[in-house]
Each structure stands twice: as C-alpha cells, then as structure tokens.
Nucleic acid binder design. Structure first.
Lengths: 213, 213
DNA sequence: GCAGGTTGCGTCAGCCACTGACGAAACGGT
DNA sequence: ACCGTTTCGTCAGTGGCTGACGCAACCTGC
C-alpha cells in the first residue's frame, strides 16, 4: 500500500463519495470507506477529523480563492461593491467544480447532519470574508453583516444559475457520470451575480428611512 | 418519579444547562444529565433526539412567534419592510429570553458541534420565513434571499444590542445567576433593528445599477 | 372497583463514531 | 547501510444513539 499520505487521502475521498452515493451517508460506515480505499478505519480518522469531512475536502480551496479575490479588490470600493467584484473572481472555481458539486449535493441534502456541516463551512467562509472587510476599514459588526448579505447574494446567484440550467441536477445519479461535461446550460454565473446584487439594491429602496419614522 | 413527561423534560433541560455550564458540553455525558434529572440515559434520548438538542428546547417558541408575526403583517408591504415589521413583533420574546440566552451562549460558543446546531436552527427559521414570503407572492428563490438578508439584519441588531449593554454578557458565569434581572442596559432593540435596516438601505446605494455596466 | 388500552419508563444488548497508546513498516536523507 | 521521520496497523476503550422487551403508572368505560 502506498505510504504517500496525499494518495491515501484522495482514495478515501473517492471511496467516500462512491459509497455515499450508493448507500447514503448513514448507510455508509467509516470502516467501509477505509476498506474500499485499502486502509483501516483508524487511518481514515487520521486524514479526516470526522466522517462528514470526507465530503468537504474541496472546501479549503474555495476559502483560499475567496480570500485572495477579496484582497485583490481596490480599496476605494465600498463593502458591498467590493464583495460583488470579489465573487466575480470566484466564479471560475464554482464553474470548474460544478460536476463534483452536482454529485455531492444530493448526498448532503439527504442528511441533516451533512446539512449542518455545510452551514458551518459557509459560516466560517463568511467570517473569513468579514475579516477581509475589517482589514479594509469596516467596523467589526458591520463587516460581519456585509459578509453575510454578500454571501447570501452569491449563493442566490448560484441557485439561480443552477435553476436556469435545469437539466443536469436531477439527471446525475450514478457515480459513473463523473467526468462527463455535465451538459452545462446557457446561463452565465457572472450575469446572475450582477442581477442578484441589483435586485438587492432595488429591494432595499422600499425600506423607509429612519428619519421619517 | 413523576410520570408526567413534561416535568421530566423540564428537569432534563435544567440538568443539562447546569452540567454543561460547569463542565462544558464535551465534559458532560448524557448519562450524567439523566442521573441528575432522576431518570436513565434511555429516557433522555426519548425526550431529545440527540444530546445537543437539550440546549435548544426554547427554539420552537421563537419559530412560532416569528411565523405568526410575519403572518400578521399587512400584505401591501414589500418583502423587506414586511420582515422589518415582523421582527419588531419578535423583539419582546428576545428581550424576555435574554437571561437564558446569556447562559447558553458561552456553552454554545465553546463547542463547534453546538455552533453547527445553532446554525441549523437559524437556517430552518430562515426557511419558515421564506415560506411566509412565498405565501405573500414572492417567488421561491427571491423569498429565500430576502429571508436570509432579513435574518442577517435581525441577528445584527441583536448583536449590536448585546454589545451596547456590555456588562451582563461576560459577568454571568455561574448558574446561580439565573433569575436575576440581568441588569439590562439602556439600548433598545427596536431602535437597533430600525438602524440596521436603514444601514442596509444606505449600504446598497453604493452598488452600481446593472444597466450602466 | 376492576379490566382494558395507552403512555412513560427501566433494562439489556448492540452498532458505530471517534480516540489514545504502542509497535511496525516505509520513506528520505546522509 | 544507517537513522530520524512519517505513516500506518492493531488493540482497547469511551460515549452517542437505537431497537426490543417488559413493567408500572395513568386514563377510560363499564
């Protein structure tokens, strides 16, 4: 068995995705994943702190790319426009990981435990974005607020983007579909992102200024 | 032993909060909580689906009150103003549960597992709010977006409110402090709520309309 | 009062996620 | 060929959580 840790980790990720696609999250034990990867259960927990984490290995890259994208935004932009521009820089990564995301999504949705972990991952990303905004001079509480709203807009754009290309989500069921070009639709995530931020701008105009109250 | 299920459940809630305040979440076993409540471990899991849930028993009331408050808002208001008004109706409940929240907060913050559960509770509340907006005629994806942004504003208002009355949060450490009036500060949650929604309105004005792009 | 179903609880057995400790095997550098 | 480091296997153990069974307490109607 290869003693290279990175190879074992990749094999565990693939084995976990395969088994959970077939038997669901609860129907898959850590021992089964380890066995398919050619290692023992103990080794599985050396590479992942818990069973759920095997599905969220690719999340680290999203965090890095997002932080870097925000750091590259000119400092003269206000918080929300800065986030809008930063998310445009993350779009290529989202598009590239679309096939993998389509495989993980049904597994995660079927398990409340995995939904919790996904929310936690999003929350930690929001905190990273908030730190980036604080570094730009935004106050602590406002930075977190903007980061939350901006991430809401980003996830909404992705949701619209997925809804617009309705074909692939339900069709991908078997693991054998990995590697196929995922039959991407005609929608553009960049456009969706701008539209969502514009919707936000329009929606908030219906709010009453405090002074009038 | 009282065979009334509600009494046992309340005793378990109190025992769980006490033991977790003293020894933390990981340092408290379900068996210990059950023993202090005068029942067996099996009975604990008859009242709560998992160990974490014993800390989130009061969450159901928040969900009910929020849904009712949104349902009572006139239909001629747009989504975000409707949420703002609905949250004003929830303020009394937040103020009333302030002492209990101050006891639970440090326990939850110290455990990533409990943080995940709290995020999940907030997420389910957001979905309930989104359903309320859909009932008002807002489209599916937009309703979820508005519910997320609105809940961000509400949680931000609560955060500001807690920060303004800085005294009580850190001081409450022992369980014996339950029942004390919590020495509320001078800040008003209603005012914070209006200010946060106004901040949101102002912040989004820095966004560039899509037509110009 | 007493027989009936219903509900809540105790007991037992068991699975699985997860962890610490120790030894062995493989790897890299010299 | 030697040695320090990393990675893995093995073992033993804890704790969260569940199903099944039996019993005791409550509610009901006669």
């Amino acid at each position: 068995m290869p003693r290279d840790g990175r190879v074992v980790r990749k094999r565990l990720e693939r084995a976990g995705l395969e088994l959970m696609s077939e038997h669901g999250f609860d129907g898959t034990t850590a021992e089964q994943i380890a066995a398919r990867a050619g290692v023992t259960e103990r080794t599985f927990f050396r590479h992942f702190p818990d069973k759920r984490e095997v599905l969220f290995a690719s999340e680290d890259e999203l965090h890095e790319v997002t932080v870097d994208a925000l750091a590259a935004v000119p400092l003269d932009l206000d918080a929300l426009p800065a986030l809008q521009r930063a998310f445009h820089g993350v779009v290529p990564l989202i598009e590239r990981n679309r096939t993998l995301a389509a495989l993980r999504a049904p597994i995660i949705r079927a398990s409340p435990s995995l939904m919790e972990r996904e929310l936690a991952k999003t929350s930690s990303l929001i905190e990273l974005v908030a730190d980036g905004l604080k570094w730009r001079g935004v106050s602590e509480i406002t930075a977190l607020f903007c980061a939350q709203v901006g991430m809401d807009a980003f996830s909404t754009a992705i949701r619209r983007w997925n809804a617009a290309t309705h074909g692939s989500t339900a069709a991908v069921g078997t693991f054998a579909a990995v590697g196929t070009p995922a039959a991407a639709g005609t929608a553009d995530l960049h456009e969706e992102l701008d539209e969502v931020f514009d919707d936000l701008r329009v929606m908030t105009q219906t709010l009453t200024p405090t002074a009038v109250r």
